[in-house]
Design a protein around this nucleic acid. Sequence first.
RNA 1: GCCAAAGUGGCGGAACUGGUAGACGCGCUGGACUCAAAAUCCAGUGGGUGCAAACUCGUGUGGGUUCGAGUCCCACCUUUGGUACCA
Length: 806
Amino acid sequence: MRYDFSAIEKKWQANWAERNTFATGTDPDKPKYYVLDMFPYPSGSGLHVGHLEGYTATDIIARYRRSRGFNVLHPMGWDAFGLPAEQFAIKTGTHPRLTTEANVASFRETLKSMGFSYDWNREINTTNPGYFRWTQWIFLKLYEMGLAYMSEIDVNWCEELRVVLANEEVDEKLAEGYTVVRKPLRQWVLKITAYAERLIEDLDGLDWPENVKQMQRNWIGRSEGVEIDFELRCHRTNLKVYTTRPDTLFGATYLVISPEHPMAEKLAVAQQLTAVRSYIEQARLKTELERTGLQKEKSGVFTGSYAINPANGEALPVWISDFVLTSYGTGAIMSVPAHDSRDWEFAKKFSLPIREVVKSPHDVQDEVFEGKESVGINSSNDEVSIDGLAFPTAFDRMATWLESKGKGKRKVNYRLRDWVFSRQRYWGEPIPIKHYDDGSMRTETSLPLTLPEVEAYQPTSTGESPLANIDEWLFGSDEHGHFRRETNTMPQWAGSCWYYLRFIDPSNGEQLVDSAKERYWMNVDLYIGGAEHAVLHLLYSRFWHKVLYDLGVVSTKEPFQRLFNQGMILGEDNEKMSKSRGNVIPADHVLNAYGADAVRLYEMFLGPLEQVKPWNTNGIEGISRFLGKVWRLVWEEFGTSPKITEDRPAEAILKRMHKSIRKVTEDVELLKFNTAISEMMVLVNELQKAGCSSREAVESLLLMLSPFAPHITEELWQNLGHETSISGATWPVFDPELARDDVLTIAVQINGKLRGTFEAATGSSKEQLLLEAKNVESVMKFLEGQMIVKEIVVPDKLVNFAVKPF
RNA sequence: GCCAAAGUGGCGGAACUGGUAGACGCGCUGGACUCAAAAUCCAGUGGGUGCAAACUCGUGUGGGUUCGAGUCCCACCUUUGGUACCA
């Protein structure tokens, strides 16, 4: 019988669906395992081989865990709100729902033909009212807790898309050729900064790649510093400045405030007023990116005013410059040009004095010195001195002194900003808020608040979403009066912030998730997805989870215990797969040509899961050959019954088999699928060479292989007379005795160079190994006429002689 | 600029806590089977010298530690990812 992958794969996929083979286990005596993929946005271009990598990995783990006796939750769903479907609607008038449905159907079909063991009964879709009802519910909770507020802020406005972009999205859109300007709009904002501290702290307990944790820490950007009050000459008010280097206060030679600082214009003296006004106006016209862009020359203008340095009473000129960010700290800084590269550049440009206050290895007039490992100099007044003190002590003493004088206060700052949460789009979750004529706001009383049908999908000319055009949806009245609904919708992140919870209890109409079920299944034990979500999705998700924790909805502080980033698969030209490059390998293409088992195995065989690696369609031939060999262990080409034998395999085969079980088990646990497959290839090669089709050996192989190649193993398992699915069978165990080598090859080196080998029994004594090593023929000639200076023996490994001529 | 990771045959990649570099696969070369081909099987395959036995060089570059370094240390080069005036 020949191996017909296409018929076999169809047969078993139908069989699994019919028997509901992969329904989530509920046996209360079993431990649980929740293995999750980052669910996809169902795009119109379909899945390519790169998308399947992570899904294959989680499927192997899901199947492996089931065979180790776990109840496994392994679900799939769709992150289906999003811009592409809306853009398509604007162009063609097709409702985004229809586009989305078609794309979902195509994605689902491809995933099913890969033989993934998802529990399809739990499929979710973020655009389904039964789902986004709870997304809206969470938003209302945020609102009630004061974590969602409206604010007039400068947003990143994209002219062409007529949409507000998150700071994070700006670069992406600019790269795609859109223009982005700053424009003030009333926006919903989520107070993620209130959770900054916890978002940093709780990273410690997670099994995440260190670099992802570090990226999140950097993104949150916690810093400890001091807010210092500078008195202004000729003004009643003070100027507050934030610094992380209070130890350099004696070296401050000027102050700088941002152009948007409330004091900016007030500080301008008469002669400077025109210059100051024109500088502020210029800055306003620039986008954020132009202001913070690459290799930018420093610019600025002097206000004409002076502030008093609280440390030494000096009068410091106050400048305005756009290198100072309005939204960080107090929007004002003290400049210490000797010890800060930005201040140094600025001082050089405008010929401001540079004063050394940290002992520097070179002249600070020529080059800045930012090091913290040196000590203070020129830093004392009648009450305090930090001369000779290293950074931590100097920081502390200055901070304490400033606080005692009422001139400063220690302060922790974060780089993280609050999250702009509203989008002027149609295809998103409506924000369930009503605005009354008297200016008050109330929450919608009945959820879900669904999207009305609209004629056109373009935003209005004022930048509001198309919902603002639908009067019958927009306006209403109740006992509190006449109201207008919120027209903003939520960003795509919203639905993906909590989807892992809904999988636990996908059709609950009463609650977001049943508490008992939540307690059983959380946390997610393994979460696999692309590194592109290392910061945003994972940070937003963690934020919402903590809010839900505070609400008592979830029982854990963190959602994802173990995170793994799969590496991208590049095109055959070693470039990122993209339509424009024409190097995309569509999933359906290789699936039709080689079958799901071959594609699954090859995806995993390419290299380490976490690594970026190029696809090479030729290489899949090797996998097809391997599957052919496995098939022929059971079937002759023209045989009518399996050629399996019931005898015990030869000792050598048995040892190989147990070693393979050990190696494959270890590798699967570590997600090292490439070497696990390699090991199974070695085993198959040996079985084939030995002409061994012993049931014991072949069945062990099939069991190990089944998470990787579920269809062929399921078929052969049945051929061998089993009536139940191999997916319900138990993972093989190895016998440590049999997995051990009795005889080992020992290397013999002279001065570290390999000169020969010999065989020795495992556990031979050092003396014996030395004796034998000296008798190896190829070694003897190198020892002749030499004096052995040192003998090194590594048991079961090697013998090395350090020699010198007599 | 800063932070992180990585550089191994023609290619993808193996190599446990320093211990026989190149497992496994692709590709290539030769052979068997065949009328022929496909499929399959067998043998070989890092560079150099040599008929051969063998010798020698070899894990980005240059140093170092060690009996012994792909693995550890120092300096540098390159690539990838992240970040971009956060005071």
